[in-house]
Design a binder for these strands. Structure first.
Length: 861
DNA sequence: GCAAGGTC
């Protein structure tokens, strides 16, 4: 029997589609990557009985990157990234082993039906799947087509079955437009990011410049925040004047009236109107109008609306909201949370979904009433053809969802109920008055029926004091007429919800990526989230955007994305050639890049105002080996040492504290050593600032401290202080750390293992000799006479920290010991042949590689 | 270490 292989974009869709097509009779098993499942059943295809295998990928199978050597920031000029640097497709998520998984499952299949999402990205994934599986499939024996594409617009029985009976073929042009987008984003984003980062990193000391990223989505996102900041800064408050009129009738409470002219910007003119109004003592009712008005029930919920409300009403950021929504979805509480659609599918079971909520103590009564009186038809929304709107899928209680989970579920459910509820109706009454020459009004709302605002009370019509009953010709007494001076007020910082709206409007990002871009500008220190989820740009963010405006506004304007997308659309429509569009666009951006590089002084001028030059920041810490003057320690990220005399910057390990290490020097280059400490309970090791960036020996890499240094004789090196194989990791060596004496300890030079030992000892030294049993270096320990824990009042003992019984209670090996050769079943000698437990560069077996000695010689000359 | 787009 022949086999049809079918692939969806995500595991959840593979399951739903298989269930529909097999009429619920498929068998399911997990795939080799643990993430995807395979659903199997038999049915008819091309008029024959066949076996069906339905599975999925997890989004893109491949992602684009530069080939390895172009990822070296130090050796590659960013300008080369526009054309010279070759790119390659790598597996998007190596952990998922997606290519292997697809190949195993597709082996020996005869036909493939592609069920990827029906958008351009989905079309592109079609070809990623085909590239992976086609070599594994049976070769077609007849001339029939083997590759089919299913086109569906919703996950409903009719739509899926229709798609199956009208299979088409994948659209190469649409896929190519995505390939072009990927390549453009990669080349442009990385070129600008690397250039900016490297340029500013070496220049300013108080600038957190670990990464100054640029991108066609994140930069306009930042631009929106800075635009608002600029509006606030340039705002000049203006005085204006309004007339306050207070009238009353009989014993009823007074009414405050709104002036029909609203306000005037000239005091004298305002005063003139007041004087005119003051000529009358009475306010005459000119008209009374009553209008029934409605507040429309909401459209069905899509992702961006959910993100907006979560941010503004629940105070939850978009990234966090999506994480919570994802969890609610996988646990079956809500439908798929990434959708642009605001229209329920025709056969959507509104009543069934509603019934699940009938027993809720929060909205159960409203739901029961709706079910018995009949639900209202939802408003007609937009169908983006992706997924149905976000709805609850089953009843839930507060305790099972957790705080934020419940708050989001509560909102989603109330929103759903609101979409099938009646509109909110209210009566608006407006009374128009004349006081001499001037006209005034007073209006009030009274609720007729709450409708959907019963479940969304925050949108309800506020209960106001009813207006007095009156009719045309009635006369009120004027209690007070006066001129009030007020000031226009500046706008506030952009709220996250407003930003989401702006991004959506300008096509910056997608429902799934909007949270990522917002998160990016926060993480890069361009923007901070203030109370009320308002987004305030930092100095860095402001300077960057102002700099782009100064040099080339295209770099920050939201139009940059849409202009490129127009070009890409031509590819997908087959109206333009992939290579030509790519080349043309790259060419434009390459010019922009060179112009940006040449004009960077313009941005630098702005930087100088906000940030201090690197030479003027930091505290003197350790001496430079070249000029022997003090270098300054710059604490701002990335922390580093700067020698202003040599104008050199030396990187340091991050996320820890740096101190001078007893003014000791590296024997190779005379730089003073510094001590890196990862926190109070963490590990520490000395390092030479020069060797850290310029590894002195061939077997060392960048970023190594003295605890990994293979110098044969230096007293701080791995060779002198290494004790034995790490008790937890495979490759590390436990190195003696004397820096915190008398809190003696040894720490692994690869992983985070720290072993404390010989508490209160006077002196601890690593001996030249090694242990007969496990080959670890012996340790010489001296204790104070009065406090020695050694037997028979001894003050000194030499032994192995792993094997010596005298040391057993003095070394905090705990459970970790179990992995050491000494304590494993089979005894100490076991594994010796594989070199376990042996110091890699133990004295007895020190190799003498020529190149290392040559390197040493070169230093000493 | 970099983009943006899928999704887990």
């Amino acid at each position: 029997m022949r086999t049809v292989f079918m692939v969806a974009e995500k595991p959840s869709l593979a399951q739903s589609i298989a269930k529909i097509l097999s009429k619920g009779s498929c068998s399911t098993r997990k795939g080799l990557n643990g993430a995807c499942s395979v659903h199997e059943y038999s049915g008819s295809f091309l008029g024959q009985n066949m076996r069906f295998k339905m599975t999925s990928v997890c989004g893109h199978v491949m992602s684009l990157d530069f080939i390895g050597k172009y990822n070296n920031w130090d050796k590659v000029d960013p300008a080369e990234l526009f054309s010279k640097a070759p790119t390659e497709k790598k597996e998007a998520n190596p952990k998922l082993n997606m290519v292997k998984f697809l190949q195993v499952e597709a082996k020996g299949c005869d036909y493939v039906v592609l069920w990827l999402d029906c958008d351009k990205e989905g079309e592109n994934i079609c070809f990623e799947v085909l590239d992976a599986i086609q070599p594994m499939m049976n070769k077609s024996t007849s001339n029939t087509r083997t590759v089919y594409r299913a086109k569906f617009s919703s996950i409903t029985d009719t739509d899926i079955c229709n798609a199956m009976s009208r299979l088409g073929e994948p659209n190469k042009n649409e896929a190519l437009s995505v390939d072009a987008r990927q390549e453009l984003d990669l080349r442009i984003g990385c070129a600008f990011t690397r250039f900016q980062t490297k340029y500013f990193q070496g220049k300013y000391g108080n600038l957190d410049s670990s990464l100054i990223s640029f991108g066609p989505c994140q930069t306009p996102t930042l631009g929106f925040c800075v635009d608002r900041h600029d509006k606030i800064q340039s705002f000049k408050p203006e005085a204006f004047w309004v007339i306050q009129a207070k009238v009353f009738k009989g014993k009823e409470s007074p009414l405050y009236l709104d002036w029909d002219r609203v306000r005037v910007f000239d005091r004298d003119i305002g005063q003139m109107f007041v004087n005119m109004a003051k000529t009358a003592r009475e306010a005459r009712v000119e008209s009374v109008t009553k209008k029934e008005k409605a507040k429309q029930r909401p459209l069905a919920l899509n992702t961006v609306e959910m993100l907006r409300v979560a941010s503004s009403a629940l105070g939850m950021g978009p990234q966090h909201t999506m994480q919570i929504a994802e969890r609610l979805y996988t646990q079956g509480y809500i439908s798929y949370p990434r959708t642009e659609t605001t229209h329920y599918p025709e056969n959507f079971d509104l009543k069934g979904t509603l019934k699940q909520q009938a027993n809720s103590s929060f909205w159960g009564e409203t739901v029961k009433a709706l079910l018995s009186e009949g639900i209202n038809r939802p408003r007609k929304g937009a169908d983006a053809g992706d997924h149905p709107p976000i709805t609850p899928m089953r009843a839930a209680s507060e305790s099972e969802l957790g705080s934020d989970g419940w708050r989001l579920y509560d909102y989603i459910t109330r929103h759903f109920i609101a979409t099938v509820s009646p509109d909110c109706k209210y009566l608006q009454t407006t009374i128009s008055f004349s006081i001499a020459t001037e006209n005034f009004t007073c209006s009030g709302k009274t609720l007729i029926s709450a409708g959907y605002t019963e479940v969304m009370p925050w949108q309800g019509v506020a209960q106001e004091e009813a207006l007095p009953a009156c009719e045309r010709g009635d006369v009120f007494t004027v209690d007070e007429i006066k001129l009030l001076e007020k000031q226009t007020s500046p706008p506030d910082y952009l709220t996250e919800a407003e930003l989401i709206t702006l991004m959506e409007k300008h096509g910056i990002g997608t429902d799934a990526s909007i949270p990522v871009h917002i998160n990016n500008v926060c993480q890069r220190n361009y923007v901070t989230v203030e109370s009320g989820r308002k987004l305030k740009p930092t100095n860095l963010g402001i300077v960057l955007v102002h700099g782009y405006y100064k040099i080339d506004a295209d770099l920050v304007l939201p139009t940059i994305r849409s202009a490129v997308e127009k070009q890409l659309n031509l590819i997908s429509l087959g109206k333009a050639n992939f290579q030509q569009v790519l080349q043309h666009t790259l060419d434009i951006f390459k010019r922009k890049f060179h112009y940006f590089v040449d004009s960077l002084a313009g941005m630098d001028e702005l930087m100088e105002v906000s940030f201090s030059p690197i030479a003027a920041t930091g505290k003197p810490l350790s001496r430079c080996g070249k000029c022997h003057r003090f270098m300054k320690y710059i604490q701002a990220k990335p922390s580093r040492l700067h020698c202003s005399h040599c104008d050199e910057t030396y990187s340091l390990p991050q996320n820890g504290a740096i101190k001078l290490y007893k003014e000791l020097k590296c024997p190779l280059d005379e730089f003073e050593l510094v001590l890196w400490t990862s926190g109070s309970r963490g590990k520490s090791y000395p390092l030479c600032p020069y060797c850290f960036s310029n590894p002195p020996f061939r077997d060392m890499k960048k970023g190594m401290g003295c605890n990994e240094c293979t110098h044969p004789t230096c007293q701080h090196s791995l060779n002198s202080l290494g004790i034995g194989q790490c008790v937890e990791c495979e490759t590390g060596v436990l190195v003696f750390d004397p820096s915190l004496a008398p809190k003696w300890r040894m720490a692994c030079n690869k992983c985070n293992v720290v072993v404390h030992f010989f508490d209160q000892a006077q002196k601890v030294q690593v001996s030249q000799d090694s242990c007969d049993s496990c080959d670890a270096s012996l340790v010489v320990v001296d204790f104070n006479k009065t406090r020695s824990p050694l037997p028979e009042g001894e003050t000194q003992h030499t032994g192995c920290v792993f094997c010596d019984p005298v040391f057993q209670d003095l070394v905090e090996l705990k459970h970790a010991t179990m992995r050491h050769p000494m304590h494993r079943p089979g005894g100490a000698r076991r594994g010796r042949g594989r070199g376990r437990g042996r110091r890699p560069m133990g004295r007895g077996n020190l190799k003498k590689p020529k190149d290392k000695m040559a390197a040493l010689a070169a230093y000493f000359v």
